[in-house]
Each structure stands twice: as C-alpha cells, then as structure tokens.
C-alpha cells in the first residue's frame, strides 16, 4: 500500500514537471505570453511600456527592437519571446538591474545599479518586457 502511494506520487511529480517544462521550454506561440500576461495588471504593463520607450528613462529602443515600435537600434538583441528566454522573471529583472554582473563586458546600461531608473520603475518595465 505504502509502495503504491509512493509510486503514484512520484508519477504525479514527474508528470507535473514534464508539463511545467513543456510550458516554459517551448518557444511560445504568439498567443501564449499575452494569455499569461493577462494575470498582471494591464495598467502596470502600460506604465512599464511608457517608461521603456521614454528616451529619458529606459530608452530600450536605442538598442533593442520591440515589435511595432519605431526606429529601434540593434546593439542588443530584439525583445521578443521574453518568457521563453527568461522563464524566471527575477533573472530578467537582474539583467535590467545590472547586466554587467553576469557579463562584465556587457554594453547594457546597469539601470538599477547606477540608478538610471528606480526599483519601482524597473519592476514596471519588467512586467512590460515580459509580455513581449
């Protein structure tokens, strides 16, 4: 009896793990991120977007392509499939906060460490970028 319980629970764990990796590991289709992003307050996402595209704030477009946004640069990679690239939102936040922590030669502005943006602003940007 005990054995059966253990077997069943192991199976359940494996199955759910497989389901989870399937969810995060699969390159996302166009609809998936939007469906997931719906859990976040759209007002926060909108605020994040405003900060991201503001030339005096995030100015993400100076270096990154964002779909449907005008005159992007290409010093950094295009901002798309962000949830596939950063299943862990905290890692995305860390990258924006200080990309030179992971790679000292990164050209990216350490937005948090050098206080180009406040922590609250970065939180909002992360929510927006994660919808891309």
């Amino acid at each position: 009896m005990k054995k059966t319980v253990r077997l069943v629970s192991t199976l359940v764990i494996i199955a759910s793990a497989a389901w989870l990796t399937g969810c995060t590991g699969k390159p996302t289709t166009k609809e998936a991120p939007k469906a997931m992003a719906a859990q976040v307050d759209p007002a926060v996402v909108a605020e994040g977007k405003a900060i991201a595209v503001n030339r005096k704030k995030g100015n993400c477009l100076a270096c990154h392509m964002i779909e449907d946004e005008p005159t992007p640069g290409n010093v950094g990679p295009p901002l798309l499939a962000m949830q596939a690239r950063y299943p862990d939102k905290a890692k995305l936040r860390a990258q924006i906060w200080d990309a030179t922590a992971a790679n000292p030669e990164s050209a990216m502005v350490p937005f948090g460490r050098l206080q180009v943006l406040s922590d609250a602003e970065i939180d909002k940007i992360v929510e927006y970028i994660w919808t891309l």
Binding site: L61, A62, C63, P72, G73, N74, V75, E105, A107
Partner: peptide, 10 residues
C-alpha cells in the same frame, strides 16, 4: 565592441 551596429538609426 559595437561598431557597425545601430543606436536608434545611427
């Protein structure tokens, strides 16, 4: 490091 790439359109 990034010569040849673009910042905005530059």
């Amino acid at each position: 490091q990034n010569t040849g790439l673009r910042v905005r359109t530059e």
